[in-house]
């Protein structure tokens, strides 16, 4: 491929057809001049290539404005805590629930009516009365 027709800009910005891209790539392997020009183009379009960023003062002004505008409130802090990747409050809630269940279990066991053959027996009534059913 002749250097004069190498379209490095189109290659770099992705406007070439696949076959043309292949041809440019083959050419870049063998032509130092084109490779140098291509690398210069890449440098020119790389992040920060324009060599300009806002001044440090402008950056600080923006940072301060953002910090003032979005200073976290108690509510947002609480929401952030609740949204932690490993929510600690869930473990805490589980522990509290386990304690409550453990403390209630004996009382529930006392109140639960005994089972006899799968049938309910009213132990509060005298035995004789419970049998006089006609």
């Amino acid at each position: 491929m002749d250097c004069v027709v190498v379209d490095l800009a189109a290659y770099h910005f992705g406007t070439l057809e696949e076959a043309d891209r292949d041809r440019v790539e083959e050419h870049l392997l063998t032509c130092t001049g084109c490779l140098r020009a291509y690398l210069a183009l890449k440098r020119r379009t790389a992040p920060g290539a324009q060599g300009a960023v806002p001044s440090a003062a402008a950056q600080e002004r923006l940072r301060s404005a953002v910090a003032a505008r979005f200073r976290p409130t108690r509510w947002t802090l609480a929401r952030g805590w609740m949204a932690r990747p490993i929510p600690l409050y869930q473990g805490l809630a589980a522990a509290v629930l386990a304690l409550v269940v453990a403390s209630l279990l004996p009382a529930l066991a006392e109140k639960a009516p005994p089972l006899a053959g799968g049938r309910y027996v009213d132990t509060a009534r005298p035995l004789a009365e419970s049998l006089t059913i006609y």
Binding site: D2, V4, D7, L8, A10, G33, L41
Partner: peptide
């Protein structure tokens, strides 16, 4: 850009 770059890459 191609036109601008031609002088540099012309062999």
């Amino acid at each position: 850009l191609r036109e601008e770059m031609k002088p540099w890459i012309a062999s």
